[in-house]
Simulated assay, not measured.
Amino acid sequence: MDESNDPHAVNSLVAEDADASAGMVRWDPLHSLWNGTMLLATLALALPLFTWGAFLMFLLTTGAGLLLGHSVGFHRRLIHGSFECPLWLERILVWVGTAVGISGPFWMVRTHDLRDWAQRQPVCHDYLAHRRPMLIDAWWQMHCRLQLAQPPRFDLGRIGRDSFYVFLERTWMLQQVPIAFLLFVAGGWSWVAWGICARITASVTGHWFVGHLAHRIGPQTWLVDDAGVQAHDVPWAAIPTMGEAWHNNHHAFPDSARIGLYPGQSDWAYRFILLLQALGLARSIRTPEPLATRKALTPAAPTATVQDHAQLSAS
Rank of each mutant, 00 (worst) to 15 (best):
W222M: 09
D116M: 09
R131D: 08
V192L: 04
D267K: 04
R91D: 03
E289L: 05
R158E: 14
L33S: 14
I239P: 10
D267Y: 09
G63T: 10
G218D: 06
T51C: 01
P48A: 03
P48K: 04
R115P: 02
S82L: 07
D126R: 05
T98S: 10
T37I: 13
L13R: 01
S21A: 15
Y127F: 15
G101P: 04
H232W: 03
S203D: 14
A20I: 05
G211E: 09
H215T: 02
L67Y: 00
S82Q: 07
R170E: 02
A202H: 03
G36Q: 06
C124M: 10
L87Y: 00
L87V: 07
G63L: 09
W107E: 15
S12C: 08
R26P: 04
E16Q: 13
L168W: 03
V25G: 11
E90M: 10
R158T: 15
Q176T: 03
W268D: 08
R91W: 15
V185K: 12
T241D: 06
P263R: 02
F184A: 02
P302I: 06
P254V: 06
W107D: 13
D28G: 03
Q147A: 12
D6T: 01
C124S: 14
W191F: 14
H8E: 10
L156P: 06
F181V: 13
S82M: 00
T111W: 11
L66V: 12
F50R: 07
I179T: 13
E84N: 13
T201S: 11
A245I: 12
L276C: 00
G260I: 04
F272N: 11
W34S: 01
L279G: 07
D19V: 15
D2Q: 12
N249K: 08
T241Y: 05
L148H: 08
A310N: 02
M1D: 05
V229G: 00
G104M: 13
P122N: 06
D17G: 06
P29A: 02
R91Y: 07
H31V: 05
P7I: 07
R132S: 14
G218A: 05
Q307H: 11
F184T: 01
A198Y: 13
R258D: 00
N249T: 05
V72N: 13
F154T: 14
A310E: 06
A310G: 04
Y262W: 13
L128Y: 01
A304C: 07
D233S: 10
P290V: 12
G264R: 14
P105I: 09
F272V: 12
D126S: 06
R271W: 15
T298P: 01
Q150P: 14
S12P: 10
S103F: 02
S12Q: 03
H31F: 05
G228N: 04
A15K: 04
W194E: 00
H247P: 01
C144N: 08
V10I: 15
T287G: 09
P152S: 14
G211T: 04
P152A: 02
D113G: 03
